[in-house]
Amino acid sequence: MHLARTISLCIALVIPLGALLLPDTASAGEIPTFAVDASWPKPLPNNWIIGQVGGITVDRQGHIWVLHRPRSLTDDEKGATLNPPRSKCCVPAPPVLEFDVDGNLLRAWGGPGEGYQWVGREHGIEVDERGFVWIGGNAENDNAILKFTLDGKFVSQIGTIAPSKGSNDTTQLGKPAQTAIDKEANEIYVADGYGNHRVIVFDASSGAYKRHWGAYGHVPSDDKQAAYDPKAPVDQQFGNPVHCVKIADDGLVYVCDRINDRIQVFRKDGTFVKEFFYEKNTLGNGSVWDLALWPDPSQTYLISADGENNEIRIIKRDDGSVVGSFGRSGRNAGQFHWVHAMAVDKLGNIYTGEVDNAKRIQKFKLTSDALH
């Protein structure tokens, strides 16, 4: 009687987040499992509200940085700013927000300023170990990445807020989606992007061009592509968007080819290594939206956000096999609508951000011994 009750309680706690499917050879403690922390983050000050989440990352201190889109808020959401005010709430928060692991807001800044043009639609944020914040955008002329101090002072930029020049131009970007820093080489990798069809690499200090490549290491092409068809031969070029880029400690570079439902893996020089497909019949906006590397010494897993199927996958990095997942479409805590961006801290906690009309950030706490 007591045993049956205990089992039923355990099931009730696990199922809402999506039960993890474990391989026969793995023990439960080896696989990351998570529970949503519905109290994170704490309420924002100043009557603030956030819009669509264009990016999320974790810095070396374990602080969570969020880039959101104030201009995505509707009149009823920003009613306190209208003249006359429509309602008591709310006021758009500044686009860059820094939180600690407990959900306290530490810093907020961003938007147009002297000496630079702010992006038209915020997309992608990275905080490097030298104390710089990199921000991109994916509006029509958002063909640059901007570099700021931690306090929001403009430093420099790569590219310009002006028309793109195509996937083989070395001076201008094409609606870049995300960046990643190779701290040893002092290089910045750009998933480029919603307009271009490539990964491009620059010196992170000088902004000097280093190299670029397309899918399979090919020279990228801007030729018109057919709509994705899971029954057709695999596309030899990246689709739009090239949505993420991540660099593992062993030097492998992981790229989200979102619309083609795949992760492609490269060496740092652009040499193609392998690819993994996920939910290959997924149409719409595709199944591979973002990635994070698991923080154990060997970075055993990739954590992948799928904004079309609205789930998070736990993937073995060596062979691409899926060992667990959680989430589903919905509005409740632990569910998603267009989960767009994600990050993992050193404690194994996952942070997610949603776009479209979800406009939400969530935290999922690690509940297994996957880091030990």
Rank of each mutant, 00 (worst) to 15 (best):
Q52E: 06
L73A: 10
T57G: 13
P41S: 07
S72G: 12
A35Y: 10
T74N: 09
S39C: 14
S39N: 14
W65Y: 05
S39V: 14
R60M: 06
N47M: 05
N46R: 08
T57K: 14
Q61A: 15
N47C: 03
R71W: 09
R69D: 09
L73F: 13
D75C: 10
D76L: 07
W65Q: 04
R71D: 08
N47E: 04
S39D: 12
P70Y: 04
S39E: 15
L73T: 11
G51L: 10
I56Y: 00
V53M: 02
W48K: 11
I49M: 03
H63M: 12
K42H: 09
L44C: 10
S72D: 12
L73E: 09
R69N: 08
L73I: 13
Q61W: 14
T74F: 10
N46H: 09
E77Q: 13
D75Y: 04
D59Q: 14
G54Y: 05
D75N: 10
W48V: 12
A38V: 12
A38Q: 11
V53C: 02
A38S: 13
P41L: 04
P70Q: 06
Q61K: 15
W65S: 05
L67W: 00
L67F: 02
N46G: 04
D75H: 08
S72A: 14
P70N: 06
E77V: 11
D76R: 07
G55K: 01
V36K: 10
L44I: 06
I50M: 02
Q52I: 01
P45D: 08
G62H: 11
R69F: 01
N46P: 06
P41I: 12
V66W: 01
G55H: 03
L67H: 00
P41A: 11
V53T: 08
G54A: 04
E77R: 10
Q52L: 02
D37M: 13
G55W: 02
P45C: 06
D37A: 14
G55P: 04
L44W: 07
D37E: 13
N47L: 07
R69M: 10
I49Q: 05
S39Y: 11
V66S: 02
N46M: 08
D37G: 15
R71V: 05
L44K: 11
L67C: 01
L73Y: 09
H63R: 13
I56T: 00
E77I: 09
S39W: 11
G62F: 05
H68N: 04
V53E: 01
N47H: 07
P45T: 13
P70F: 03
R60D: 08
L73P: 11
A38P: 07
G54L: 04
I64Y: 04
Q61R: 15
T57Q: 13
K42G: 09
N47D: 02
P43D: 03
Q61T: 10
G51W: 07
R60E: 13
W65R: 06
R69A: 05
W48P: 09
Q52D: 05
G62V: 11
D37T: 14
R60G: 07
T74Q: 11
D59P: 14
